[in-house]
Amino acid sequence: MDEILQKIISALDEGEDEQISLLVRQALAIGFEPMTILENALVPAMTRVGEKFACGEYFLPNLIVSAEAMKQAMFVLEPVMRQRQQMLKRAGVAVIGTVQGDIHEIGKTLVGTMLSVNGFEVHDLGVDVTPEKFVSAVAETGANLLGLSALLTTTMTVQRDVIQKLEDAGIREQVKVIVGGAPVTRAWADEIGADGYAEDAIGAVEIARRLLDVEGII
């Protein structure tokens, strides 16, 4: 294994996001193909971080900083790949956000980070997002996954409204809808006709992969 790829692997493991950008640029400069950097360094490194998390050695913050580093590395790689007309294999396109009337952010952001590190193109609409905005974002991006976050019993009803609006717009079949947030239960997800529900970011990725039948990295 080449030294520079090894360095990229450890930078990702330690979540050194500034350093990883430099290293990826260096690797490109000395002639590595973007796909080689991705498949021989970034993906296996991220998989290992996931494994360390699964066995209890790493905690959530480790996962996040590595995911951030992965994102930085992709910022460098993607333009080069586009230039060379190399297609990145996407797990899917995801639209996520916290529903109208609710400003809780962290959980939704974590889900976005975990989806993006697992190969999803993530469009994070932020917080306090109206049903209309969700629907138009799904239509515009051609998303096949929609994640709706609600942390209050008073706002979780908006999750139902969004699903209704998707039906009204005739694009419900295009997209799998997953819901989450502290008060959300499996029973609620079933009641409002969501496709899936998870209690944490790791669970959200698992359910997304299962619904869309795609493989992930961690």
């Binding site: 979540g15 913050p61 480790n62 996040i64 952010e105």
Partner: peptide, 10 residues
Amino acid sequence: GHYLAHRHTL
């Protein structure tokens, strides 16, 4: 913001 990804947290 959040502290999950801060070096201080790690």
